[in-house]
Design a protein around this nucleic acid. Structure first.
Length: 475
DNA sequence: ATAGGGTTAG
């Protein structure tokens, strides 16, 4: 019995049995809140304490403190540069002022300055940010004993992308090529992300495929590199097109190509084509590997076929490809999308019997499963449990919890969660704010929604994304 | 060494 025949077996089964459910240890809320805070802060502190706690290794300690000093100096210098750039305008010679700072220009300094500019971009200052960024980029590139890296090219390209200076991005790619910098998947991704229409995106792909300077390592050929980059930015439809180009160009698929295509087709929901490719793969003598199994588990989960998934897991063990925590997480995620919470719970309990330990991703997926199934209290319990077990919630976890509180209308608790993540050094991303704002708006709490946006902008974050809130109106 | 698991709401 192989995986392919298992998959085509249309076994529909829901595992609804409370006997599978092991009662979890529940966070004892009588712990003082300070205990809890300390507990959670611990892992974040670890990273900070490393340089202080190595007094017995004086050599390492010196290295680290020198390095830290250099980083801090670079940040201070970057601040000075940004101050100078702010004064740019008629009657102020920015380039002379930059020279007068007499700074030691380093890669770190350039990165910090460009990062600073990137952070400050908003709707109103785009043109100015692009101009200043480029002015600094050119200036620093001329400093003696300093050369830009491909990384700094990518940063200025990112600034141009945010400022919608697309032609300037292309000029930079030409410049990179002329000067012999490696044009990589990162360069490709930056360009493709700014393509509003499919036609333009195809042109970018064509240019990279034909390019003789495209550095597509570690992949065997540029097609796989491009397919992989497209998967990373969820451009599934383009993946199909690139795949067709690849075949027209006379390349044959390898294991990576098949897996990338399978992934794209399952994300597009094209299951017929998915199965066709799976058959073709088998015909060409390729056996499913751990990546393929992962995709298959997702498909079985999303198709609400827990029994078939169970069989596939057994099959994996038989062929010596033991399922890992990744496989269980993928499966639970799929089952959650199918709305089969009982099966999610079953496999979440089952993974420990398979030598796996749930990590932050797995807990987050399970918390999300409870949340979308409307079992917010269970989600809260699991959140507490993961903290006890030493798994550090991240921005995905917090977003899921915040969404849960919003769904049950507990906005005060959602704000508390937001404050908590901020105080623990977990920086909210745009999506976290977007979640809060959407739910507040839908609940008719417009002024509260506005407060969240103001809070976000005051934090100095994502000002350029304000217009991307759903139903945004200037008010 | 090199590819693999998780986000809105509509």
């Amino acid at each position: 019995m192989n995986a392919l025949s298992l998959l085509s077996a249309r076994i529909v089964c829901r595992l609804v049995s409370s006997s599978f459910i092991v009662r979890r240890t529940i966070w004892n809320r009588s712990f003082g809140s300070d205990d809890r805070f300390e507990f959670v802060m611990e892992p974040y502190k670890k990273g900070l304490e490393r340089s202080e706690s190595c007094e017995f290794e004086s050599l390492r300690c010196d290295d680290l403190s020198v390095r830290r000093g250099f980083l801090e100096d670079s940040k201070t210098d970057a601040g000075k540069v940004l101050e100078v750039l702010k004064q740019d305008g008629p009657g102020f010679d920015t380039l002379v002022a930059l020279d007068e700072l007499q700074l030691k220009v380093s890669g770190v300094l350039v990165r910090e300055v460009l990062r600073g500019i990137l952070r400050s971009i908003n709707v109103l200052n785009k043109t100015q940010c692009a101009k200043l960024g480029y002015k600094f980029f050119v200036w620093s590139g001329k400093v003696e004993n300093f050369n830009h890296t491909a990384g700094s090219y990518h940063m200025i390209m990112k600034i141009f992308a945010e400022c919608e200076e697309f032609k300037a991005m292309w000029r930079l790619v030409d410049e990179m090529t002329e000067k012999g910098y490696p044009v990589t998947a990162r360069t490709f991704t930056l360009l493709i992300c700014t393509c509003g229409d499919a036609g333009l995106a195809r042109k970018v792909v064509e240019r990279f495929i034909k390019s003789k300077t495209f550095n597509y390592r570690p992949f065997k050929h540029s097609y796989n590199a491009i397919l992989h980059a497209l998967l990373g930015i969820k451009q599934y439809k383009l993946i199909e097109w690139v795949y067709q180009q690849m075949l027209l160009d006379g390349h044959s698929s390898d294991m990576l190509t098949y897996n990338l295509l399978l992934y794209a087709r399952c994300k597009l929901g094209k299951l017929d084509q998915f199965h066709r490719l799976l058959d073709e793969m088998a015909r060409n003598g390729f056996s499913p590997d751990c990546h393929t199994y992962n995709i298959l588990l997702y498909v079985l989960g999303k198709g609400d076929k827990p029994l078939a998934a169970l069989n596939l897991l057994n099959h994996m063990r038989e062929v010596g490809s033991d399922p890992s925590i990744l496989h269980f997480t993928t499966l639970i995620n799929g089952l959650s999308r199918a709305g089969n919470l009982d099966a999610c719970k079953y496999f979440f309990d089952e993974l420990s019997n398979n030598g796996c330990t749930p990590d932050v991703v797995c807990y987050t997926v399970m918390i999300t499963s409870y949340t979308v199934a409307g079992e917010h209290e269970k989600a809260r319990e699991l959140f507490d449990e993961m903290v006890i077990k030493g798994q550090l919630p991240n921005v995905f976890t917090y977003n899921s919890m915040i969404r849960g509180f919003c769904m049950v209308g507990e906005f005060e608790e959602a704000y508390t969660m937001l404050e908590e993540m901020e105080s623990r050094g977990c920086k909210p991303n745009f999506l976290v704010y977007s979640t809060l704002v959407s739910y507040l708006r839908n609940a008719g709490q417009l002024s509260e929604a506005h407060k969240v946006i103001t809070h976000m902008v005051e934090k100095g974050q994502y000002a350029h994304l304000v217009t991307k809130f759903k139903g945004y109106r200037r008010c």
